[in-house]
C-alpha cells in the first residue's frame, strides 16, 4: 500500500515537474535558436565556403554537450510502451531537446570565437544509465564541428574552456 502511494506521488511529481521543465526548456531553445540562426550558421557537410581556405580565415574545433534525464512519469510511460511496442514518444522529446541544446551550446562557443559558421558537424549520443532497474534513463549528446573564423574577427577571440584543445589545433 505504501509502495503504491509512493508510486503515485512520484508519478505526480514526475509529471508536474517534468512537463514544466520541458516546456521551459523548449521556450529557451526556441528563443536561442532564433538568435543564433543568423549569427552562427551550422552545416553538417565538410566543404567550406569558396573563400573557405583563404588567407583571411581560421578554423577551430568547437563543441557543445549536455546530459538530460527523463522524469519518473515518462520513464514509467516508456516502460509500459516497451510491453506493447511502438514509438516511445516520451523519449523522443528528451532526445530532441538534448540534441538541440548541444548544437546551441556549440553555436554559442563558436559565437564567442567570432565565427560565423560551423561546418562538418558531428553528433554523438550516449546513454549514461541504460534503463537499469531503479535508475532514471539519461542521455548525453555531444555536438562538435569546425568553426570558421574570419581574421578580422580574431581580435574578439577569448580563451574558452576548450583552450588547450584549440591551442593544439592551432599548432597543427
Amino acid at each position: 500500500m505504501i509502495e503504491f502511494v509512493t508510486f503515485l506521488v512520484l508519478m505526480a511529481l514526475g509529471y508536474g515537474f517534468g512537463q514544466y521543465a520541458e516546456r521551459k526548456h523548449y521556450r529557451s531553445i526556441l528563443e536561442r535558436e532564433k538568435r543564433f540562426r543568423s549569427e552562427v550558421l551550422v552545416f553538417q557537410t565538410g566543404v567550406p565556403p569558396e573563400q573557405g581556405q583563404g588567407q583571411d580565415q581560421d578554423v577551430r574545433l568547437v563543441m557543445g554537450s549536455v546530459v538530460i534525464s527523463v522524469d519518473y512519469f515518462k520513464r514509467f510511460l516508456a516502460g509500459l510502451r516497451a510491453l506493447f511496442g511502438g514509438r516511445v514518444k516520451s523519449y523522443e522529446s528528451l532526445l530532441d531537446r538534448a540534441r538541440r541544446e548541444a548544437v546551441l551550446r556549440m553555436q554559442q562557443e563558436a559565437s564567442k570565437l567570432g565565427a560565423g559558421m560551423v561546418i562538418n558537424l558531428r553528433m554523438e549520443t550516449a546513454s549514461i544509465s541504460k534503463g537499469e532497474e531503479k535508475t532514471v534513463g539519461s542521455v548525453e549528446v555531444l555536438a562538435y564541428g569546425t568553426a570558421i573564423i574570419t581574421r578580422d574577427a580574431r581580435s574578439r577571440f577569448e580563451p574558452t574552456r576548450f583552450g588547450r584543445a584549440t591551442e593544439l589545433f592551432e599548432r597543427a
Binding site: L95, M123, A126, S127, K130, G137, V139
Partner: peptide, 11 residues
C-alpha cells in the same frame, strides 16, 4: 544508441 532496454534510438 540504446536509451532504454529493448528500445532502439535511431538518429
Amino acid at each position: 544508441s540504446s536509451v532504454a532496454q529493448g528500445a532502439a534510438e535511431l538518429f
